[in-house]
């Protein structure tokens, strides 16, 4: 009976799980200054019940953060505005982002993880797993402009 109820629950929730907005819990913050043109360095933290977080999850969180959250200025970092404008853009361009963060994993083209060991911080009953991610922000911006998700500076001219 228990299995049957769980099965029903899975069937009920399945359609919603495909939305890009159903991101796991994460934080992005300044990852330090980077001199490489067109790139931005963030520190990405993904919350997990155990310490098991995959590189793809960290990359997905880093790109998602760059698109919809941005990073505040701190220390040697300049502020970084969300590339897609705000979280509203995610629902406005639901089809694009479902595909972007979906099975094709298009986001992987715009991020690399630093080869440093992951950091682990225990927060209440969960773990924060963090690392440095380098976002190819110019390439991401240009592709979003091409896809019509954001307006380019020359749009309309």
């Amino acid at each position: 009976m228990k299995k049957f109820v769980l099965g029903l629950l899975v069937i009920f929730l399945a359609p919603f799980s495909s939305f890009a907005s159903d991101m796991f819990e994460y934080d992005v913050e300044c990852g330090g200054a980077i001199s490489k043109e067109g790139y931005y360095m963030v520190k990405v933290w993904v919350y997990s019940a155990n310490k098991k977080v995959t590189p793809d999850e960290l990359k997905k969180a880093a790109v998602h953060g760059a698109l919809f959250r941005g990073v505040s200025a701190s220390g040697e970092c300049r502020s970084f505005k969300p590339l897609a404008g705000s979280a509203i853009a995610e629902s406005q361009h639901k089809d694009f982002f479902n595909s972007f963060f979906g099975a094709d994993k298009q986001y992987l083209s715009y991020v690399t993880l630093a080869s440093t060991p992951y950091e682990y911080i225990k927060v209440s009953k969960k773990y924060k797993v963090g690392t440095i991610a380098i976002i190819s922000k110019d390439a991401l911006r240009k592709d979003l402009e091409k896809a019509g998700v954001i307006r380019g500076l020359s749009t309309g001219f």
Binding site: S35, E37, R78, S79, F80, K81, K137, R151, L153, G156, F157
Partner: peptide
């Protein structure tokens, strides 16, 4: 060069606001 590159995104977004007003 670093100063120019670091400030360009912010500058472009402010310029965008002006273009929107022009239109």
């Amino acid at each position: 060069e670093e100063a120019i590159v670091a400030n360009m995104d912010e500058f472009a977004s402010r310029l965008q606001v002006y273009f929107d007003d022009l239109f």
